[in-house]
Simulated assay, not measured.
Amino acid sequence: MCSPAIECRAREASGMGRASKREEIAEAAFRQFHKRGFNATGINDITKAAGVPKGSFYNHFSSKEESALEALSRYADTLRFDLLTTPDLPPLERLRAHFEYLSRDTVDNGFVRGCLVGNFGAEIADHSEEIRAAAKQGFDTWAHRLSAVLAEAQATGDLDGSLDTETTALFILSAWEGTLIAARVDKSPAPVDAFFELVFERILR
């Protein structure tokens, strides 16, 4: 859903303000997974990116899978859900602002990363129950937030009251995930433009 510019969590600091080893490794893992995918990312890639010895990884994470679960949590923090609740802005404008932020990041990063939740879901959901469950929770939470905004739009009379907000939210999120895949293949913003045209100019009118 998504592929926003990385906004790091507040770093755990030492006495000199330097990020902790765990934070450095977790952040490096997040970036490597988002850039390379789960299977193409090795422990060596993570520790090299973090600038720490390989043995340091296992001082903080029991496995690559555990660090991937942490990466999913970090990714959720980059999705700018706050844009969905901006005060004094109509619901559908908030919804559009959310996806405009994600689309700008997708274009600015050259269509190479996609959505980490969708990437993990496609790549390893059949092989890791923990990651599948975490990805599902991520999608469910995201869809619930979108549904809440659509319900607000219905309450203000800006959206057809006959639309089922949960079904519509799930469709929009699924369409966005497909848009990211198409944009990565096409290496152009055309799929993104089509998403906005269909969702905001037709479905949600």
Rank of each mutant, 00 (worst) to 15 (best):
A153V: 03
L159G: 14
T156H: 07
I172N: 01
H144C: 05
A153I: 00
L170N: 15
S174P: 05
T167F: 11
Q154S: 14
F171M: 11
D160R: 07
W142I: 12
I172E: 06
D158L: 08
T156F: 13
I172K: 03
A153Y: 00
A148G: 10
A151E: 00
S162F: 07
D160W: 07
T167K: 09
S174K: 00
A143G: 07
T141C: 10
H144M: 15
V149S: 05
V149N: 10
Q154A: 11
G161W: 00
F171P: 06
L146V: 15
L173A: 11
G161E: 09
L146C: 07
D164C: 04
L146N: 05
Q154L: 06
G157D: 12
A151H: 00
D164M: 02
L146R: 02
A151C: 00
D158T: 03
T141N: 15
L159K: 02
W142C: 11
D160G: 07
R145V: 06
T156S: 13
A155N: 04
G161N: 03
G161Y: 06
L173M: 14
L150P: 09
Q154K: 05
G157M: 11
D160E: 10
L173C: 15
L159A: 13
T168V: 03
W142E: 15
T167G: 00
S162N: 13
A169E: 02
E152D: 08
T165H: 06
E166G: 08
T141W: 10
T167H: 14
V149C: 12
T168N: 05
D164H: 08
L150Y: 03
